[in-house]
Design a protein around this nucleic acid. Structure first.
Length: 500
RNA sequence: GGCCCCAUCGUCUAUCGGUUAGGACAUCAGGUUUUCAUCCUGAAAAGAGGGGUCCGACUCCCCUUGGGGCUACCA
């Protein structure tokens, strides 16, 4: 590569940040990082009707959460306001209207684009006629054929509503080399005379991105495969302007597991925010989505952002769509959770605990949550967590003595007497351990040496149930270590009372 | 309907003409273990179909089938 690449992520502020968009942004970022290029963000807000007020903020929050940083373009400043940086601005399309006007009129002057005065109603009927005749719906160039440029300009001056359309050649083919799919070839006559400038004076995506990617010196456009059918239009536009088009790379789609259709908001939680709220770690989400449609051709599966940047290669992008498999994400998230140190993980878990502890408080339980206590819980629960939110599930017993059916205290076919003896034995062991020795290792050693090595369950199962009230839980050593001597003894005594 | 893209285990994927078609998730079985989880072992599991090309096709070409996308004054 003889020139430093310039690549962009171009969100539309129309809602939340979709997980598929995050993947696109990630690939763009990795590419820039790998080749030491520039990654800029441009805001494509040319559809005034669809703008959602704080959508842009969410985009930036999502990118920041994922650790994806850009060098140029639109940013969120410290006070949360939209700011811009870079020499090719403005980077917000709604601020570039005169630029698009200028270029589109140049095309009109050169006879490569024309005014169209057709009403939406005429366009609708035209379309339905064409559909009935099993033809490809396309504008019939009526206004191009009907009015000379002078006549059209007169109508415009008289205040008639108009759009400007591109005059697509009716013959020939348009070719380009797609960075992921190879040689692409399209027949021009299948292409519609698409609108460049809308009647509200805003450009369409087609015009705006072509002008901007040229002016902002983009070298590679990485975007979703939904753009592939309109790619020849864009190439033709570049040619009409006499500009060298950037390279294009069209990414395969991320698919819904059940419908196998492109993942969309109707499939439930697909926004980056949703993943964050559900307790997925950014490291896991980034790692997982990076592998959806790309892989390094080795057997490595776990990557940091830096490793991804080192290994990323557009040539290794897949053409086929990839189904989003939540189960594999869960596994990967668990892996990253287990790699976290306790302190960091505790901090991440704290908000989820908030919900659990307020519910417990309502029931009159003890919800005192010091850093130390929280860290203990987290260190015990960590290995069975798939999501951060799991920390708030089945963990009430750390705060509140459990209610449970006394029947589950029995290990295998113990008699009532055996059970009583077993619990009394635990009680005896515990009462002889001093508070200051209430450490995990010590507790474990004491209990293990007291338990019959052939039948440890006889001591450990009833104790564990007495402490947790659950058939499935962490070990009694861990639980008793967390909740402490006084509470442990209280719970064991309570459990003995449950035996008739 | 028209145009375009795509096609290996259930899922993500490796294989750039010659492999016992490899790995990971999930599943199942075993081990460790008081339970769950973690961890370790192992098993089952795939080239959509039909034509070519070639000494030889998962791999290259064509057709069929299947899936997806686009078909707006949305991006």
């Amino acid at each position: 590569m003889n020139q430093k690449p310039r690549v962009r992520f171009a969100p539309s502020p129309t809602g939340y940040m979709h997980i598929g968009n995050l993947r696109t942004a990630l690939y763009v970022y990795l590419y820039a990082k790998k080749y030491d290029g520039t990654f800029y963000i441009r805001v494509e807000d040319t559809d005034q009707k669809r703008i959602v007020s704080d959508a842009l903020k969410k985009v930036f929050e999502s990118l920041e959460w994922a650790g994806i940083k850009h060098d140029e373009g639109v940013f969120l400043d410290e006070s949360g306001n939209i700011a811009e940086k870079g020499e090719y601005g403005p980077y917000i399309q709604s601020k570039r209207l005169e630029i698009y006007q200028k270029y589109v009129h140049q095309l009109v002057k050169e006879g490569k684009a024309y005014y169209c005065f057709c009403t939406p109603e005429r366009l609708d009927t035209l379309r339905s006629v064409q559909e009935k005749a099993k033809l490809a719906p396309a504008y019939d160039k009526l206004c191009l054929k009907t009015y000379s440029r002078e006549e059209a300009e007169k109508k415009v001056e008289a205040g008639e509503k108009y759009v400007i359309r591109f005059d697509v050649p009716e013959t020939g083919e348009t070719e380009f080399e797609d960075a992921v799919r190879g040689k692409m070839k399209f027949v021009n006559k299948n292409l519609d005379d698409f609108v460049l400038l809308k009647s509200d004076g805003y450009p369409t995506y087609h015009l705006a991105h072509v002008v901007d990617d040229h002016l902002m010196k983009t070298t590679l456009v990485i975007r979703g495969e939904e753009w592939l059918p309109s790619a020849p239009k864009h190439i033709l536009l570049f040619q009409a302007f006499g500009w060298e088009p950037p390279q294009y790379g069209h990414l395969s789609a991320i698919l819904n597991k059940d419908t196998k259709k492109k993942l969309s908001k109707r499939d439930g939680d697909v926004s980056v925010e949703d993943f964050k709220n559900k307790g997925y770690l950014p490291e896991a989400v980034v790692n997982f989505i990076s592998l959806l449609g790309w892989n390094p051709k080795t057997e490595q599966e776990i990557f940091s952002l830096d490793e991804l940047a080192q290994q990323f290669d557009v040539a290794k992008l897949n053409k086929a769509g990839a189904i989003f498999d939540l189960e594999k994400l869960d596994w990967m998230n668990g892996l990253y959770i287990r790699e976290k140190n306790i302190k960091d993980l505790a901090d991440l878990c704290r908000p989820y605990f908030g919900i659990a502890s307020s519910a417990i408080r309502r029931k009159g339980g003890n919800t005192e949550l010091t850093d130390k206590y929280l860290e203990k819980i987290v260190s015990v629960e960590r290995e069975r967590m798939k999501k951060l939110s799991d920390i708030a599930e089945n963990t009430e017993f750390y705060f509140d003595a459990p209610n449970y059916d006394g029947k589950i205290l029995k290990w295998k076919n113990m008699s009532d007497d055996d059970l009583k003896n077993s619990l009394n034995k635990s009680l005896d062991i515990f009462s002889r351990i001093e508070e200051k020795n209430w450490e995990l290792e010590n507790l474990k050693n004491r209990l293990m040496e007291a338990a019959d090595s052939k039948n440890r369950g006889e001591l450990l199962w009833p104790l564990r149930v007495a402490l947790t009230g659950k058939e499935k839980s962490p070990s009694p050593f861990e639980v008793t270590w967390v909740i402490g001597k006084t509470e442990s003894i209280k719970r064991i005594k309570k459990s003995i009372q449950k035996i008739k």
